[in-house]
């Protein structure tokens, strides 16, 4: 990994480069695309994604392209991966934005973006709570990914790299809740510090971005399930007809797709505003759409839908853990506060 590129004046130091190299290696090792549904497919081409220039959710105009790309990554490579990249990069970007000493933050962000950075695991609500700042993060759930994590603690972001990452949950009948103690993680590097006076602002923005990343991952996972399901109903024949020619089947798929489309649109809109409320709305819509996609996929695969052979159960576990875990966005009080804000907006 070289240190050249856009001349923003920003350079990684040697320690950081070491961490980034570790991150890249972990990423390649732990995110083969056969994780969920593509045996034998090539590894994730991070550099290709990075070189595309689309991995830049942190510029001044977070774009629909960014949101869709991350959702798309999740489509391709399994539930939540897009969210993780998105969150990791965006969190760093938020800090970069917040530091008044970094005048050319966009260029610096672009510099960071040229590299296959690191992947934060944000798949558990515990981690999100740590983002939200209501608890010291004592652990993170590295079971479904966790090649590299971003840890936010006291306004300090640290890249953490588990040295002995255990990637075997997918072979066991466990829900992805195995915790890894942060204290057990040997490598830690501070990559940025948030100025104290900006902590609240950054925390809120990071929370919104984190939630958007998760929403994006949910939408991506739902889309992946839907595509798999379409493939099945196009091949499977019943009563002498292709299953997908029955209107009941078509309508169920289309309705699930429309929910995902609406969720993706909401994610795109929330990317533009980055408000906490819009992020919560996008996440709720995505969670609901992804749960519907699981249900649709399971039902339309018939018996196969409840078999171990079909990877639907992996999605089901991942999506339901995300969508149904206690989370501030689903809290009734928060939902009512969001409603009150919408009403106020209408009256303005």
């Amino acid at each position: 990994m070289n240190n050249s590129g856009i001349d923003s004046g920003f350079r990684f130091d040697e320690d950081e480069l070491e961490v980034l190299e570790l991150a890249r290696a972990c990423t390649e090792r732990h995110f083969p695309v056969d994780r969920f549904d593509r045996p034998g497919a090539p590894l994730v081409n991070w550099q290709g994604l990075v070189d595309s220039g689309l991995l830049a959710p942190w510029d001044d105009k977070p774009s629909w392209d960014s949101a869709m790309l991350f959702s798309g990554i999740a489509h391709e490579f399994g539930a939540g991966l897009g969210a993780q990249v998105y969150v990791a990069n965006s969190m760093v970007a938020s800090l970069v934005h917040s530091d008044p000493s970094l005048r050319d933050h966009t260029a610096m962000a672009a510099e960071i973006n040229r590299r296959p950075l690191f992947v934060a695991y944000t798949g558990s609500d515990r981690m999100l709570r740590s983002f939200l700042g209501d608890a010291r993060p004592s652990m993170f759930s590295g079971a479904t990914s966790g090649a590299v994590g971003l840890l936010v603690e006291d306004a300090e972001v640290t890249v953490v790299v588990p040295s002995d990452y255990d990637d075997d949950w997918s072979s066991a009948n466990e829900w992805p809740a195995t915790a890894v103690q942060i204290a057990d993680i040997p490598v830690g590097r501070t990559v940025a510090r948030c100025p104290h006076e900006l902590h609240a602002v950054v925390t809120e923005e990071m929370s919104a971005i984190a939630l958007l990343g998760r929403a994006s991952g949910l939408a991506g996972a739902g889309g992946s399930l839907l595509r798999r399901t379409v493939g099945h109903v196009q091949e499977r024949e019943l009563f002498g007809k292709v299953l997908g020619s029955f209107q009941a089947v078509k309508h169920r798929i289309a309705a699930a797709d429309i929910r995902l489309t609406a969720a993706r649109a909401a994610i795109g809109a929330a990317c533009r505003t980055r408000s906490a409320r819009s992020a919560r709305i996008a996440w709720r819509l995505a969670a609901s759409a992804a749960v519907d996609a699981v249900s649709t996929a399971t039902q339309l695969h018939g018996g196969l839908g409840v078999s171990w052979e079909m990877p639907i159960h992996w999605y089901a576990k991942s999506i339901h853990q995300e969508a149904w875990s206690p989370l501030s966005a689903t809290d009734a009080v928060v939902r009512l506060a969001d409603l009150a804000e919408a009403v106020k907006e209408a009256q303005r």
């Binding site: 489309t261 609406a262 649109a265 969001d338």
Partner: peptide, 12 residues
Amino acid sequence: ADQLFAIQALSD
């Protein structure tokens, strides 16, 4: 309210 947000987003 969430659904209406998506109407606006889809419209955009």
